[in-house]
């Protein structure tokens, strides 16, 4: 048993060393390791031509870290091979948000995905743009390496030298990290920029659903929300889903200012909506993660289904369909 633990720790240290996170406190490094494991799973699935599995692994990686352009390229490649063009389009649109320079390079691919989705009017200009790009000198020069500077912004700084503890046992003793990230990198809350209806409308699935209740659990906290049970009444966009929709009921919208626990916050039934209330739910990917669907940008992807919100959503959907 001890030998197994020792081996596991050894492997973990090797992996951390490999991804360059050995200096981080384990609690902070863990998400990136998890992401890399998902990417590795995806790569293995791709090599074995299990493309749907690879797509799902990339989705899991994105659920851990949603601002790495390479992951969206991986998701697009896997989804393309799996023939899931809705995901191809969603992945490329997100890639363009993160890296606008990729718009020229992948315009044709997005056009092809939109063609397969029957969105012909949107597909035509993109396909033409892609064909123009492919004949341009830019297509023959090696593409500029996508940077993952966004990851750098999010990477927590290393612990102060005096508190340096081997990574695998430091999780419970995370000293307040020294702020070494340049202020210029931190001043823009990029997640907040994405919190617009224009962003939400690009979600893979949008539904109108009724809140039925939540699944009781002893460890519900602000950052460990309950799973809420919804019943889909209408699918506004996306693939057909089971009417019974378990949704992770987040209490914050993932913007940086909301990444701290509000003072005096305790979970109670009154934090949940009224049973029978109607909601518009935006699911960036229509695939459950750990038994529940994640909404677009946390609680931002959950709007009361009142007339005003419905009108706005319908108008945006109309515009998106280019009608």
């Amino acid at each position: 048993m001890a030998k197994t633990i020792k081996q596991t720790l050894s492997q973990l240290v090797s992996l951390l060393a490999f991804v360059g996170l050995i200096n981080l406190p384990a609690a902070q490094a863990q998400p990136s390791v998890t992401m890399m494991n998902h990417v590795k799973d995806a790569q293995e699935a791709m090599q074995a031509k299990r493309y749907a599995e690879a797509r799902d692994a990339f989705r899991l990686a994105i659920a851990v870290k949603d601002n790495v352009p390479e992951l969206y390229i991986g998701l697009y490649v896997a989804a393309y091979q799996a023939g899931d063009f809705q995901t191809v389009a969603a992945a490329l649109e997100k890639l363009f948000e993160l890296n606008p320079e990729a718009k020229n390079q992948y315009a044709g691919e997005l056009g092809e995905a939109l063609y397969h989705m029957g969105r012909y009017d949107e597909a035509i200009p993109l396909l033409k743009k892609g064909l123009a790009y492919i004949d341009s000198p830019a297509a023959n020069t090696p593409p500029k390496q996508l940077t993952i500077k966004d990851v750098a912004i999010d990477v927590p700084p290393p612990p102060a030298p005096q508190t340096h503890i081997p990574t695998q046992i430091a999780s419970a003793t995370t000293a307040k990290p020294v702020d070494i990230i340049p202020a210029a990198h931190k001043k823009i809350d990029k997640t907040k920029l994405e919190q617009t209806l224009e962003g939400a409308i690009r979600s893979e699935g949008i539904v109108i659903a009724e809140y039925l209740g939540y699944q009781k659990s002893p460890d519900i906290t602000y950052f460990h929300p309950p799973v809420a049970d919804f019943k889909i009444h209408k699918i506004l966009k996306g693939p057909p889903l089971n009417k019974d929709l378990p949704v992770r009921y987040e209490f914050h919208d993932r913007s940086e200012k909301n990444m701290e626990l509000p003072a005096g916050w305790h979970f109670s039934d009154d934090k949940m909506p009224e049973k029978g209330s109607q909601w518009i739910l935006f699911m960036y990917f229509c695939a459950p993660h750990k038994g529940a669907y994640d909404l677009y940008q946390g609680c931002y992807g959950r709007l009361p289904a009142n007339e005003e919100n419905l009108n706005r959503v319908y108008a945006m959907l109309e515009r998106e369909r280019n009608r």
């Binding site: 791709m46 390479e70 290393p158």
Partner: peptide, 30 residues
């Protein structure tokens, strides 16, 4: 100072993982 190192390492790791993946991007231009 260690942030760029981590960034580079993560880039390299992702690059290595993506490296052997059959990419649609690699599809022949024709």
């Amino acid at each position: 100072m260690s942030v760029p190192v981590k960034t580079l390492a993560l880039s390299m790791a992702l690059g290595l993982l993506f490296g052997s993946m059959p990419a649609v991007g690699a599809m022949d231009a024709l």
